[in-house]
């Protein structure tokens, strides 16, 4: 027997049982309590006891999406931060980098995710998408095409869609901030 066992058995110590906090849970607590968000972003927990599922509302105060309130759902699993959180846009919005199912094209949500990144980095990345939509790597191809070819028409479409209007036969959710 290697030495760590050479010591005497201690029967009663084994009786005490403690549930433990998982590494993922501690890390989420750390990430959340250290969030450094501008006034344009707000988290919401439908169950404040559940830190792993929440939503983020982004209300851009500049750029073409100004005046909107965009809601993203965050779902974190036990393998965080080895795996990134799953983030989706809960509304149907007209944006080159968000598709109609709410999938978001943000590199750090998939191929460039690293455990040293945190929830703050993701949120900042999401907000950036509203300030500087990227027409070169589109998820909504129509929107991207419009953005690079006819910027004015695109702006009009954005406004229209944000009010809950339809663009090219597709009805979008109203996202005007109240």
């Amino acid at each position: 027997m290697i030495k760590i066992w050479s010591m005497k058995k201690n029967e009663d110590a084994a009786a005490k049982k403690k549930p433990k906090t998982s590494a993922a849970q501690i890390r989420v607590q750390k990430d959340l309590t250290e969030l450094d968000l501008p006034a344009t972003m707000k988290t919401h927990f439908s169950d404040p006891a559940d830190l792993l599922n929440f939503s983020l509302t982004i209300t851009p105060d500049e750029g073409m999406y100004r005046g909107g309130a965009f809601v993203f759902s965050f779902a974190i699993n036990a393998n965080y931060p080895h795996e990134p959180p799953k983030v989706k846009c809960t509304q149907k919005i007209y944006h080159p980098n968000v598709d109609l199912e709410g999938n978001v094209c943000l590199n750090i949500l998939r191929e460039d995710w690293k455990p040293v990144l945190n929830l703050n980095s993701i949120m900042v990345g999401l907000q950036y998408l509203f300030l500087e939509p990227n027409a070169d790597d589109p998820l909504n191809k129509e929107a991207a095409m419009e953005m690079s070819k006819n910027r004015d028409v695109f702006l009009q479409h954005v406004k229209q869609s944000m009010r809950g209007g339809s663009v090219k036969g597709i009805q979008y959710d109203s996202v005007i901030a109240r």
């Binding site: 027409a135 070169d136 991207a144 095409m145 690079s148 070819k149």
Partner: peptide, 8 residues
Amino acid sequence: MDPTDHSH
């Protein structure tokens, strides 16, 4: 070239 094509 158009910017999208250029970036590809």
